[in-house]
Amino acid sequence: MAKITFITKDQESIVVEGTAGSVMELAVQNNVKGIDGDCGGVCSCATCHVQVDPASADKLGEASEIEQDMLELDDDANEYSRLCCQLQVTEALDGVVLNVVK
C-alpha cells in the first residue's frame, strides 16, 4: 500500500492510496484534474505530466530514455518532471508528493 499526494494546478491536494498499476491509472481513477492519460499509459501522449516534490524525489528511480525524450520537448518540464504512466505503484512510493503540471 502506498499513499500518494497529488497537488493540482489550482493547489488542491488529493491523497490517494494504491497497491498496483501505474500512478497515472491511480490518478485517473480518482479524477485528479490535469491527468488525462489519453494513451492509456504507453508513453505516447504526455498527458500525465507531474513534477515530483524535491523532498520525495529520492523515492523514484530514473526515467527511461524514451520517457526523457518525451519530456525534453515539453516546455513545462524541469529536472523533477516525470510522466506518471511510467511510475508503478509500489510500497517504495509511499508518501510521495506529485505536482500536476497541466
Binding site: D38, C45, I66
Partner: peptide
C-alpha cells in the same frame, strides 16, 4: 500489448491531434 509505445500517429507537441480522444 506493447507497453512502451511513443508513436506519433496523433502528431506531436503544439498541434497534436485535437480529435485523438474521440478516435481512441
Amino acid at each position: 500489448d506493447r507497453k512502451v509505445n511513443p508513436h506519433v500517429s496523433f502528431g506531436f507537441s503544439t498541434h497534436n491531434c485535437l480529435g485523438a480522444t474521440h478516435a481512441r
